[in-house]
């Protein structure tokens, strides 16, 4: 094989990738810096002045600081559902990987089904109304947990299968009860895959649009994705504000990307290949 990096091919690839993948983001940023008049032109030009700050202020304060509410809601939603996901999925993955019973086939089938089958929306709404969780943030938390479980369980089960069973046994001989074995021995060892899980699922929940749209109607509970969707019609003519909004909600995934790129890639491929 060639040892020297192919420079020619590299330059072409960098140029093309910049055109295809970076220009749209540059467009978002540039538009967010513009004032209303210039933004309306929808062109790829340098901003006339620095209007980012006033745009942000306007986006954030619109509709009675709805953006702030939305960020708080999205944060609660993400943190709560991912926390529950991690603990519950790890528990299932642990027992599923360790104990072979005749139920395993059925359980694995249900997990795969959950990866494939789209949720039945209206019956879910009907059910949520029945148990008083429709339109409630904690209801949506549970929904996100339910929909995220199959992926997380598959990740955990695959990882737990690589932890030697002798560790559990050593702990049992040392006098550990099942609860101790899981929380003192297994869960700490799952840390790498837990980070992956946290990162992948947080991005998914934070960016989720469909489920809040169905299960969390009303402005009081809006999440950031819903807010953006609502602003789309409201800021129909104020593209500077619309793109400022997009820029704001892209920051959390960007931070995640910068700090956890490796984990996301590892997790998504591991989960995908196993699934």
């Amino acid at each position: 094989m060639k040892s020297r990096p192919s420079i020619f091919l590299g330059i072409i690839a960098i140029l093309v990738s910049a055109l295809v993948f970076l220009v749209p983001f540059a467009f978002i940023i540039l538009t967010a810096f513009k004032n209303k008049q210039q933004a309306t032109l929808l062109d790829f030009s340098w901003p006339d002045g620095f209007h980012l700050w006033s745009n942000i202020v306007e986006v954030v304060t619109t509709r009675n600081w709805m953006m702030v509410t939305a960020f708080i809601n999205s944060t609660i939603l993400t943190v709560a559902s991912v926390t529950l996901l991690v603990v519950f999925a790890a528990m299932v993955g642990f027992v599923l990987a360790r104990r072979k019973t005749r139920w395993n086939g059925l359980i694995e089938f249900l997990i795969l089904a959950g990866l494939m089958i789209p949720p039945a929306v209206v019956p879910t709404i009907w059910l949520l109304q029945g148990i008083g969780l429709f339109g409630k943030l904690h209801g949506l938390v549970l929904i996100e947990v339910a929909y995220g479980l199959p992926f997380s369980i598959i990740l955990y089960r695959a990882f737990i299968a690589t932890i030697p069973r002798e560790l559990d046994e050593a702990a049992i001989i040392d006098g550990a009860r099942p609860f101790d074995v899981f929380f003192r021995i297994i869960l700490p060892l799952l840390w790498p895959v837990t980070v992956t899980n946290i990162v992948v699922q947080s991005v998914g929940v934070f960016n989720d649009f469909t489920n809040p749209l169905y299960y969390l109607p009303g402005n009081a509970n809006a999440t950031v994705q819903l807010t953006l969707y609502n602003f789309q019609s409201q800021f129909n003519t104020s593209y500077n504000l619309l793109f400022t909004n997009i820029l704001l909600i892209t920051i959390p995934p960007l931070l995640v990307f910068l700090f956890f790129n490796r984990h996301i890639v590892a997790g998504m491929t591991a989960g995908a290949v196993k699934g």
Partner: peptide, 16 residues
């Protein structure tokens, strides 16, 4: 196992 008065050393040592 914890009440049997035994201790065990595993092939892989099984250190935490």
């Amino acid at each position: 196992p914890r009440d049997r008065g035994i201790a065990m050393v595993f092939q892989s040592y099984a250190l935490y």
